[in-house]
Design a protein around this nucleic acid. Sequence first.
DNA 1: GTAAACTTTCAAAAAGTTTTGAAAATTCGG
DNA 2: CCGAATTTTCAAAACTTTTTGAAAGTTTAC
Lengths: 168, 168
Amino acid sequence: MKLTEAKQQFISSWGAFGTHWGINRTMAQIHALLLVSADPMTQDDIMEELNISRGNTNMNIRELINWGLVERVILSGERKEFFIAEKDIWKVVRQIVKERKKRELDPMLKLLDQLEEVEGDKRDKNIKTFVDAVSSIKRLGKQADKTLDMMIKADENWFVGSLMKFFK
Amino acid sequence: MKLTEAKQQFISSWGAFGTHWGINRTMAQIHALLLVSADPMTQDDIMEELNISRGNTNMNIRELINWGLVERVILSGERKEFFIAEKDIWKVVRQIVKERKKRELDPMLKLLDQLEEVEGDKRDKNIKTFVDAVSSIKRLGKQADKTLDMMIKADENWFVGSLMKFFK
DNA sequence: GTAAACTTTCAAAAAGTTTTGAAAATTCGG
DNA sequence: CCGAATTTTCAAAACTTTTTGAAAGTTTAC
């Protein structure tokens, strides 16, 4: 397979993959493109390579910057802004986990705390079922929270190395 | 908070949560409703409780059954089918991980294998950047694959117990 | 100061996804 | 088998999300 074709395949699959993970296609594609590109790219480069509009490109680059996955760089002697992706994929994963935890898991845990305190006799079958379900989700959620925090702090060797040896 | 209100809150939040994870709102809501309900429910019960159409209910119940999260039960003396959700939340998580791994991670790893074999001189900067990116994603993906396999086989105590003690 | 280069915004259009509901198919008791 | 009860299907409608592109805003070199 030729490089150009391989790049295209990668970009398009990464885009499709992203949509299953709550990241929109364009955002994932821009990220993919920058990931596999040797040099920093301008907004116009990206627009042209992916055949997308200026507005779309701009919005999604900014979103990637918000997520901490892409950086703006200024090349001396150039007027335009250039962009590069974080190439350490482990950092990328940690960054995504961190953001999603903050946006999704944390609020959910807060809600579960409130719901656990439903009024009524815990011997009532309906109340018991509800409280049991909420409690067990909360327990697992809290655990996931801790595990993810650890993962966010850890380096790649933790994940690829020790964990595996321990459980082998 | 009253039980009815708490249930509604739970259902609606679970629905919103689900949409961030590639599960559609209705599917997540039906699952939530069954999770916190003491007794098996019919399709009509669900339709009425969530105010959704017959077709929508039917499709999403079937999808939940496909995912292994909901079961059809026949109550003797009743003509209608009843549905219940798996209440062991750890089993639910494992089931979801298993399905998504099969649908998403496995095909991605397969693709990465192919892309790594791009033609050309590895000393070419563009080829090197591409291959490096693909290889490191593959490495992490393979590791995630193993870890998830382990998680699928393990019981809840692995997750909530030993893992944590080891890394405390 | 100003004009060219460049970036950002946002309303409207397009694309994608979910929901509806009525009709078709299936199941089951008698 | 029959027919009532129940489940399933699917085309069209409603809704949601993404994309476009032109206009407005900002920056910079001179």
